[in-house]
């Protein structure tokens, strides 16, 4: 299992870099990891809103929400979502939020 070191702590991740031990997530993890998803500088309030939303949804339902739902519930469109997370909601946002990997279809 690959490991990464962020802000002085070691985390286990899978080959795509998704956090394996979900309870190890913390805000420093998200911040220190952000640059690998092409986000420059500190995470903004808008980023946190999405990250917290994803975490809440995941805690409640055990899966990541559909993208349309993310946009609707947060009052943003796809363009904005990609502006915030240039590598996309599934890869970028879920990874920073410490969700287990969404099972994508080919």
């Amino acid at each position: 299992m690959p490991q990464i070191e962020l802000a002085g702590k070691i985390y286990e991740v899978d080959e795509d870099g998704f956090l394996q031990e979900l309870d190890k997530w913390n805000e420093e993890f998200a911040q220190a990891y952000a640059h690998t998803e092409d986000i420059e500088g500190p995470l903004t309030e808008e980023h946190w809103k999405i990250i917290n939303y994803l975490r809440d949804y995941f805690a409640k339902f055990g899966i990541a929400p559909m993208v349309r739902k993310v946009c609707k519930d947060n009052g943003i469109d796809m363009k904005k979502l990609y502006e915030l997370f240039p590598t996309g909601p599934a890869k970028g946002a879920c990874k920073l939020a410490g969700l287990s990997k969404p099972t994508g279809c080919v």
Partner: peptide, 8 residues
């Protein structure tokens, strides 16, 4: 899950 910038 892998990708390139700007593409989902």
């Amino acid at each position: 899950i892998v990708g390139v910038k700007g593409y989902g």
